[in-house]
Design a protein around this nucleic acid. Structure first.
Lengths: 241, 241
DNA sequence: CGGCTTGTTGAACCCACTCAAAGGTTGTGG
DNA sequence: CCACAACCTTTGAGTGGGTTCAACAAGCCG
């Protein structure tokens, strides 16, 4: 299978994700320098790991195609799906702290990714060769932080709103990355979705059903169609008290 | 009041937080360069803002003494306490994304802080003058990410464990920063603590009471004494299912 | 088809919330 | 210094949203 992709060496220059992924905000010269550092397009099958919780930090990962999930295992061995990852998104910032990844990244379907190696001692070199990269990486890291913050806030809402917010967030992110934002396939099972939202799979199913009954969305197994995005947003605008 | 502190210009060199705050991991020369960039020790009274959600990003903040809370306001105006901030901890990474802060930082008592200005155009300059700073800032940013991730995981546990985990986390962080880790004052009211943990103030009060009845902690209003840290940790080690 | 996985639906239960009231603590003015 | 008010905390009783347990339907793949 790998042979198929061996010659498929898309560089950062001509990658279609250049405005949202790593090359974002870099000069042409910087992109070429970046290009020589990046490890390009590895391919994974569903269920395979990009990296595992506890693995020594190797670098920042850029999702190129397909989707992945970010999973943390707690001390009892329970899995917690922290987020799902879409093309153009970066992960691995959690690994810079203790030089090992704080959670695992697992392919949800056939997917490809690129890798920006960042060994501690090469940090300064990278900043010299690609001066803007530090700033851009910080922006991406900052995005991750904002995402988690919003997630913590969403966590306190009732089940229906959690589900609605999840769909809205997914829709927005797909939109930003040039995908269809009103009709898409959930990359997660009800079980996984419930896990991510802090609900049981039954509740998740019921809430999707309920949103469908209200005419806001159409659910066909994993395929979601948003019929009325503004009304869906309105679902999440009820005072908690 | 400010006059009292005007001459009290402690530099990063002789700050007692040098091993955990910004100067961590920097060379002597770098610390001196850093020192010339940093705005030192502003003082705030309880309730005053370090920065407000939506304010244009001005820089990374280092808590020097006292405590603060990180607060996000959702679209309905509800407050959500994302975290509390202890001396030596850095905040503001959430502001690098959209050049404005994603949440507010508010003093919980009389406190002081330093500021590392980081205008976009000066990023490269800073990286030149203090080559290790990018790496160290990323580590701190990474710490924030890991913290939020752990918080999301804790959020799914029952009320008693949430409270126990909060106390343990606080104890660990106090310990790492050289404070007493087994006896400390909660900087938050029950109301605020409940808000932070996604519980009501009544439940928070009850859970503290319950942990006290089990002999694990002693509660005297805001003063917490941990009588048995390992048993307290054990409270959080029950299978969810 | 038959076995298996995934998703839906129903009914009973329980943890945390809500509402309410009492007890403590702190601050202020007489 | 005491009295009173304002606020915070504790405690109790009832309610409800989401879970649990269980059965059934729908895809999927041999």
């Amino acid at each position: 299978m790998d042979e198929l992709f061996k010659d498929f060496q898309i560089s950062c220059n001509n990658c279609n994700l250049d405005t949202i992924c790593l090359p974002r905000g870099l000069s042409q010269q910087e992109i070429e320098n970046l290009n020589s550092i990046i490890k390009k397009s590895s391919i994974l099958q569903q269920g395979e790991y990009i990296y595992r919780q506890g693995d020594p930090f190797k670098g920042i990962i850029a999702i190129k195609s397909g989707t992945a999930k970010l999973v943390a295992n707690d001390t009892e061995g329970n899995e917690h799906i922290l987020n799902i990852l879409l093309p153009g998104e970066l992960v691995g910032f959690d690994g810079l702290n203790n030089k090992k990844y704080n959670c695992s990244a697992i392919a949800l379907d056939v997917m490809t990714y690129c890798e920006l190696p960042l060994p501690a001692e090469q940090f300064e070199t990278l900043c010299q060769q690609v001066p803007s990269i530090a700033r851009e990486l910080f922006k991406h890291s900052s995005e991750s932080i904002c995402e988690s913050q919003n997630q913590v806030v969403s966590n306190k809402r009732p089940a229906e709103e959690k589900v609605a917010l999840f769909l809205i967030n997914l829709s927005d992110r797909l939109n930003k990355r040039g995908f269809s934002s009103l009709s898409f396939n959930l990359p997660l099972s009800r079980q996984e979705m419930g896990n991510h939202l802090g609900l049981t799979l039954e509740t998740t199913s019921r809430m999707l059903q309920h949103l469908q009954n209200g005419g806001l969305i159409t659910v066909q197994r994993k395929k979601i169609t948003i019929n009325n995005l503004s009304s869906l947003r309105a679902v999440c605008s009820h005072d908690l008290k």
